[in-house]
Structures are given as structure tokens and as C-alpha cells.
């Protein structure tokens, strides 16, 4: 799992040296930003179900044709799976906030997603719409502190870019 510490250790190990002052400074920089990340992760974990529900509702209200026969959400089972996937993406963003890097999203969310969606004939546009709604809906200080919100939104943007 890629994170600041594992990147530093991998580089030091490849060179066969002890962690240098540069390495310790890099980890120190990561630690300084950690408080905001962990706050965002905590708030997101606490409200994960509500955020998922709101994001899914927003996407189905914008693209109401998705529930027509023959479309991606023409049965309740398929609609539920859309909400489930959104929940998975938000959970992975929670993991990214904990780790302090995009490793969890890259490894468990984005890698291979394009191929899967294509083979299942699923549109990615609605996911983008749902995540954009979440990004624009979140605000400071109601949901979390400004710095925490900044971290949260940067991972949302990363995912939106990957899906669009």
C-alpha cells in the first residue's frame, strides 16, 4: 500500500541505507498534515450512509431516465447496486484520507474500473454527477473544518477525474 512512509522506506531499502534526515523530514511533513486528514476521515465515516444516500438521490434525480426499462437502473436491485458502489467509493476516499495518499483508490477503486464499466455497459457519467454533488454540497464549518474539507475535496476531485 503506497503511502508517504512506505515510499520513503522503499527508496531507502533500494539504496540499502538507514532512514536519512531527508526521509525523516518527509515523514514529519506528512505527520503535520495528518490532523486535518484524520478529522475528515472521522466525519466522513460518521456520515457515510447519509452522504451516500444524498449522492445517489442527486444522480437519479438529474438522470431520471436511468430508471426507465432497459437503462442501467431499471430494477430496484440495480438501483441498490448503484448506491452500494457509491458507498464503496466514499469508503475508499475515507481510506485515502487515513493513509494520506491515493493508494487505496488506485488499487481498489480505479484500477480496472473502466474495463468493468464498459463490459457491463454502465455509464460513468451518473457516478461523476453523484460525486460532484457531494463535493459541492460539503461545506465548512458545518461538515468539517476548512482544511479537512480541502483534503476531502481533493480526493473527490481525483476520483471524478478518473471516472470522467
Amino acid at each position: 500500500m503506497k503511502s508517504v512512509v512506505t515510499t520513503v522506506v522503499t527508496a531507502a531499502d533500494a539504496a540499502g541505507r538507514f532512514p536519512s534526515q531527508n526521509d525523516l523530514e518527509a515523514v514529519q511533513g506528512n505527520i503535520q498534515r495528518a490532523a486535518a486528514r484524520l478529522e475528515a476521515a472521522e466525519k466522513l465515516a460518521a456520515g457515510l450512509d447519509a452522504v451516500t444516500r444524498e449522492a445517489g438521490d442527486a444522480c437519479f434525480s438529474k438522470y431520471s431516465y436511468l430508471k426507465q426499462a432497459g437503462e442501467a437502473g431499471d430494477s430496484q436491485v440495480k438501483v441498490d447496486k448503484c448506491y452500494r458502489d457509491l458507498g464503496h467509493y466514499l469508503r475508499l476516499i475515507n481510506y485515502c484520507l487515513v493513509v494520506g495518499g491515493t493508494g487505496p483508490l488506485d488499487e481498489w477503486g480505479i484500477a480496472g474500473a473502466r474495463e468493468v464499466y464498459r463490459s457491463l455497459s454502465l455509464p460513468t457519467g451518473p457516478y461523476v454527477e453523484a460525486l460532484t454533488y457531494t463535493r459541492d454540497r460539503a461545506c465548512a464549518p458545518r461538515d468539517m473544518s476548512p482544511q479537512a474539507l480541502n483534503e476531502f475535496k481533493s480526493y473527490l476531485d481525483y476520483l471524478i477525474n478518473a471516472l470522467s
Binding site: 512512509v5 484524520l38 476521515a41 472521522e42 466514499l90 481510506y95 487515513v98 493513509v99 494520506g100
Partner: peptide, 28 residues
């Protein structure tokens, strides 16, 4: 390779649960 943060993520993923509450105390 894991660190303290990714260790908690990997164990939360096994339960498909977000990392929150008590898990974050150790990281803090």
C-alpha cells in the same frame, strides 16, 4: 509493505467498513 495507517485501512477493508471512531484513536 504497510505502515500504521495502511494497516488500519487493510483491516477495515476486510470488514467493508470505513475507518472511524476507535480505529482513529491509535493513529492519532
Amino acid at each position: 509493505m504497510l505502515d500504521a495507517f495502511s494497516r488500519s485501512v487493510v483491516s477495515a477493508d476486510a470488514k467493508t467498513a470505513p475507518v472511524g471512531g476507535s480505529d482513529l484513536a491509535g493513529l492519532r
